[in-house]
Nucleic acid binder design. Sequence first.
DNA 1: CATTTAAAATGAACGCAATTCACTTTTCTA
DNA 2: TAGAAAAGTGAATTGCGTTCATTTTAAATG
Lengths: 226, 226
Amino acid sequence: MHNLVDFPARIFYIESSSLQAARVRLTQGEVRKDMSAGKREKILKAAISVFASRGFYNAKMEDIAREAGVAVGTTYLYFENKDDLMISIFEEEMEPLINRMRENMATKTTATEKIATFIHSHLTFVERNPDMAHLLEVEMRFCSQFILGYHGGRFKEYLDLISAALVEGQISGEFKTAIHPSIFKQILFGAVDQIATNYTVSKPKRTLLSSFADEITSVILHGIAK
Amino acid sequence: MHNLVDFPARIFYIESSSLQAARVRLTQGEVRKDMSAGKREKILKAAISVFASRGFYNAKMEDIAREAGVAVGTTYLYFENKDDLMISIFEEEMEPLINRMRENMATKTTATEKIATFIHSHLTFVERNPDMAHLLEVEMRFCSQFILGYHGGRFKEYLDLISAALVEGQISGEFKTAIHPSIFKQILFGAVDQIATNYTVSKPKRTLLSSFADEITSVILHGIAK
DNA sequence: CATTTAAAATGAACGCAATTCACTTTTCTA
DNA sequence: TAGAAAAGTGAATTGCGTTCATTTTAAATG
């Protein structure tokens, strides 16, 4: 436990700077931009598919390269290594998710509605993007020192949508003021994520995931006590 | 997403039967029992320590063997492979945790107190067993198809302590009857686990984890709405 | 258009670490 | 105490991530 830091921390710092490097290399060539971007995208999409179906641990770089229609070595021109590929998926696929969530929440006027929207939108996303959901929820946990640690930019951004809504509701008088935003955002995200993960992992998907949204919202808003 | 099953499912079924095999091999020799059990235990403890400090992915079987004071090959006499070692840790270390939790909850009379106890005890365990907590929360997620899927015996047992308390409270009239136990157990566990994981991963542990227990309990029982 | 130069792409070769197995040591049995 | 069986060993095997010398493709130059 002493050096939790050692495993991903070191690796991932190098990796995230390498992500920059890859992008720089990309934008340097003026005309190649399109072609390179296309190839990078192809590899990234291939990786999402292969990681989701075989799992990060069992996925071979060769599989990803074949799926993307390139040579193994080519993947290393766009991504530092297997870890960086995973991190890049997270960083780049998370952005549209956050943006859409922010927009969805912005359409609502009350904080209560915003909280309800977060829950419903998250579950709907998981329902519609099973591959990405599986990666974000399951495969990615192993590098959670990076994602969950205080450095994880995108993830924190996502959680902060929750705490912002809470604070808004506390100011407007909708919510109790005693609740600490940084605790609450974890309670809510944890609850929703657990249900989503369980759904993602379970094989016979009998009910629609988003149908649980109201029940979660109710517990969060009003509790279970009579 | 099509074949989530492929990755761990296949492997882990073999593995869990191999766990049996190892145990059989163990109990066959009458007098060797102690010695073998001791060695198995040594390897298991070494693995917990090494996995926790370096991470499953970066931990070498050689490190574990050295830490346990045996040859690399010996580890393969007691465990099928690296994965099985991890699974065995989960299966075997989870049992005392579940038992202690069950006992703690049994000392309380009202369902409300039982829920509060679950939250507090879980956080206290994480606080006191950082190595195991780190494994259960972070390193182990990567094999969550096994743990979270409907086959995961021990984990389900743990969650069922929550749903049992909920049902008890619904019968006694403490809790609303509209809440579905199998949803609620996930909401509560997810919330507590998210906070615990975040704590485990964060480096400067400024406050005591168990100090969050009351706030979580309050949100779960009474919600955030005024 | 031919030629030079640079960028991209390739896949065989390298190295590390999980796993195996032929062999040694220890323990049990008679 | 001899012989058999069980445990234990670590060098050899194997698989896979990563590298790099080479080839292919594209851009620049005259």
